[in-house]
Write a protein that binds this DNA or RNA. Sequence first.
RNA 1: GUGGAUGUAGCUCAGUGGUAGAGCCCCGGAUUGUGGCUCCGGUGGUCGUGGGUUCGAUCCCCAUCAUCCACCCCA
Length: 426
Amino acid sequence: MSKKIQAIRGMNDLLPEQSPLWQYFEQQIQSLMRRYGYLEIRTPILEQTALFARSIGEVTDIVEKEMYTFADRNGDSLTLRPEGTASCVRAAMENGLLHNQTQRLWYQGPMFRHERPQKGRYRQFHQVGIEAFGMEGPDIDAEVILLSARLWKALGLFDHVTLELNSLGSLEARRAYRETLVAYFESHHEVLDEDSRRRLSSNPLRILDSKNPDMAEMLAGAPRLLEHLDEASRVHFARLTELLDAAGIPYRLNPRLVRGLDYYSRTVFEWTTTALGSQGTVCAGGRYDGLVEQLGGKPTPAVGFAMGIERLILLLETLDLVPAETRHGPDAYLLAMGERAEQEALLLGERLRDVLPRLTLQVHCGGGGFKSQIKKADRSGARLALILGEDELDRGTLGLKFLREEREQETLPREAMIERLEELLR
RNA sequence: GUGGAUGUAGCUCAGUGGUAGAGCCCCGGAUUGUGGCUCCGGUGGUCGUGGGUUCGAUCCCCAUCAUCCACCCCA
């Protein structure tokens, strides 16, 4: 066993049993994006390491210890993308998409983070994300959230997820608040646990998120982020909540909600669920007005989110929301008995697909007895079995058997069978 | 990176210090061309890997790898 080559830890094969559900999800996404006027962008999964270091933040866990980074043959440091926003911004800038214009973009694909795998968290995982550039008002924040809410409704998830909302304020206000917070924490240094002391210098806002009950009291007395917002951010946030109220989207204000990536400012939000164990965040995003400039572009307001496809698929399965049509077999399964019939069946299959573009048809290959072939027809999930044996071959007919209904088997001439199938497909 | 649990047939799992079992799946038969139900038969395993203890290890010990769950972090 140990001699066999296995997949990389935390990188999973998507098996045929699973792929129809993924395709269903991807179709929902494509339709959703089209309906909101978002256009897809595809970027390479490899980028220069500096792109992620400069955007995500040098001292974040992602950059410090979770990136797949290695040297190219010429010595350049390359990294498999750990998230989509940085690449998207880079590509948009590089191709002039942000020059005096707004953009609504979406992307989808694999991301890579070298973490310990667990339920809902893998080293290669997949995200769908959107990024809206060039719009600074809260209306676009609201649109981004409404778009995600529409997806939950389409998937039947809306009652199973909660929207958590917060504002981090402008970068300046956040920096000032950060200092206030660090001062507060330092005055309670004896209460801080080991993790929190470490974060004091790296990411003090994260300490607010601690689950340690011994720190609960101290945290409750900590200065509130929402009370330290700059005036413009306060107005922006108030307007966003008004818009969500008007649209009937419930949310929970969570002053402790801090996103892990450095580039966020003002609005941040998360859609969470309690049905997945500890990896409960299913979609997260917010505003990152400073990022484009930080990466060398002109100041450009931007807002977006990313959602984890594995987690959403897992959620659909856990809640038994997998649509029945993702489990369907082909419409028909064509059996062929004997060598002569094999050739006929192959050609007949082609003819049927020519004439009936909607038909999904599996032609039996590999021989075998009648019994075993019809058994395979059954196992394929097909509704109909088309039978081409010696008798049918001699008479130029075709048998039609209903595998899932109490109906008489039929025998028809080939051409008549085409019409019959057309009828049945309607 | 830390902690815990688990590695036996393709899958789900029993099992014993004396060279391995069930159910499902797959193949064949009962039924010369008719699946699902039933019955009968069959294929399939270096018991994760390496070492140690022992006359003998799938079982006991150590190491290692992998998977799962949780922490950290995150989608």
